[in-house]
């Protein structure tokens, strides 16, 4: 990707597609820890121990929030790279 940065400059459609792809991947993770692990899979995950508590409870009261924080910083970092690749950075 980074080996031919010039060719992508001015490719507005490509930039937007790269952004959307990243957003979709990160939101899929966002939904699977919150709505997945802590809600729709909560009943099966309730039976899986996680140290002294159950896995569903950990996601519901701790884990999903930690993942949220990481997701935002990952997005910011990856977008720094994509912005430069397509030469739209500030």
């Amino acid at each position: 990707m980074a080996d031919e940065p010039q060719s992508k400059a001015g490719d507005g459609v490509g930039y937007w597609k790269a952004n959307l792809r990243l957003i979709i991947i990160l939101l899929a993770i966002w939904a699977s820890v919150s709505y997945g692990a802590a809600i729709f899979l909560a009943n099966p995950f309730y039976n899986i121990p996680f140290f002294k508590i159950n896995l569903a409870f950990w996601f519901a009261h701790q884990g999903s929030m930690l993942v949220f924080v990481v997701l935002i910083f990952v997005y910011a970092k990856m977008m720094d790279k994509i912005d430069r690749e397509y030469d739209v950075h500030e």
Binding site: I23, L27, W30, H61, S64, M65, F68, I72, A76
Partner: peptide, 26 residues
């Protein structure tokens, strides 16, 4: 509130933090 709701208190915890991912990305 959470101490009385137990597990279900998650809707406050995730509900009032998860929106920031949407804010940051969208």
């Amino acid at each position: 509130l959470i101490s009385f709701l137990g597990y279900n208190g998650t809707f406050y915890l995730m509900g009032w933090t998860g929106g920031y991912v949407l804010l940051a990305l969208l």
